[in-house]
Write a protein that binds this DNA or RNA. Structure first.
Lengths: 161, 161
DNA sequence: GACAGATACTTGACTAATCAACTAATATCT
DNA sequence: AGATATTAGTTGATTAGTCAAGTATCTGTC
């Protein structure tokens, strides 16, 4: 009994049904996030920073004046970034962060956001939040909470969560 | 009234609450997909192909013997790929696809999956499906359907959907 | 206090993604 | 038919991501 083709099938112009619900869910997640990512990037483009750079700046703003050691930033990042050193290099070149060797443990490098960095984030705060709401405008707040809960469950069930 | 911190907040070691539900949902989506992506990549690694290359091979298998013009592949891809030419270059170098200029419209290049390409996909089919089910093991099938529906709604509400 | 091992990055080599021209072929308009 | 526009794809230059190996520092252990 052929069901009506799913929205995702139409999006991907796929004729045959997905081999499993799990597979459709995976593709749906990947495609949706790819679309959302492009929307988010557009907002950051005028300021000349990438999504990951923006994320790092927010983490450092959250850390406050004490700053954070390099690898501690990675553990707080959304997307795993083995290239953290060079990402910070670029942010430092733009004067958005400042790094200095930690005096008590000279292996560590303490990273702090600079005034220009804070200014950039301040300029973006409102428009970023507005964009996020806009991008998820297809869902009510209640549905957004439901989505968050389902995603939590996914991550909870992951091998190396 | 301080609520208990969300799962995502703990994951990201963030102390302060998110400025909006939409923003938490966005981060949750990004983080979840990043985790899932790494799980998926591990399966493909032994065969020496990337997620996007795998995706293209599946699209070409779906297209059958007639093959597809290069840019038509892009429209069917999950993640937008401006680098489709070089992606196909790599697949052709591995003898997984074959390209030839279309005789009726010589601007187009028709791409087809080769026998070795089909063999590679055949080797992966079972394990990919198993992995997808495993990665989404935190959700029941009903919950997976619910997730798919929410994601459909998100894409439906997107500016350039 | 010397040595083994662990940490915290850093660097180099390679691969891949991105954006902006550019070429070739077809379609359209007059 | 000839000029112009559009489409399909490629190429080059820049930037960014990935993996393995290396360096400096610290933490125990004997």
């Amino acid at each position: 009994m052929p069901e009506t083709p799913s929205r995702l099938q139409r999006d991907l112009k796929q004729n045959r049904p997905f081999p499993s619900v799990a597979q459709e869910a995976m593709l749906s997640l990947f495609k949706t996030v790819d679309d959302l990512r492009r929307g988010a990037i557009q907002v950051l483009e005028p300021e000349g920073i990438t999504l990951q750079q923006y994320n790092v700046l927010r983490i450092l703003r959250g850390a406050g004046a004490e700053g954070l050691p390099t690898l501690e930033i990675v553990t707080r990042m959304i997307e795993q970034a083995p290239g953290i050193t060079r990402l910070l290099d670029r942010l430092e070149r733009k004067k958005l962060v400042h790094r200095e060797r930690c005096p008590t443990d000279r292996r560590q490098v303490t990273c702090r956001i600079t005034e220009p960095g804070l200014g950039l984030l301040a300029r973006l705060d409102a428009v970023v939040d507005r964009t996020n709401r806009h991008l998820l405008g297809g869902l009510t707040t209640a549905e957004q909470r439901q989505l968050i809960q389902l995603l939590d469950q996914v991550r909870e069930g992951l091998p190396a969560g």
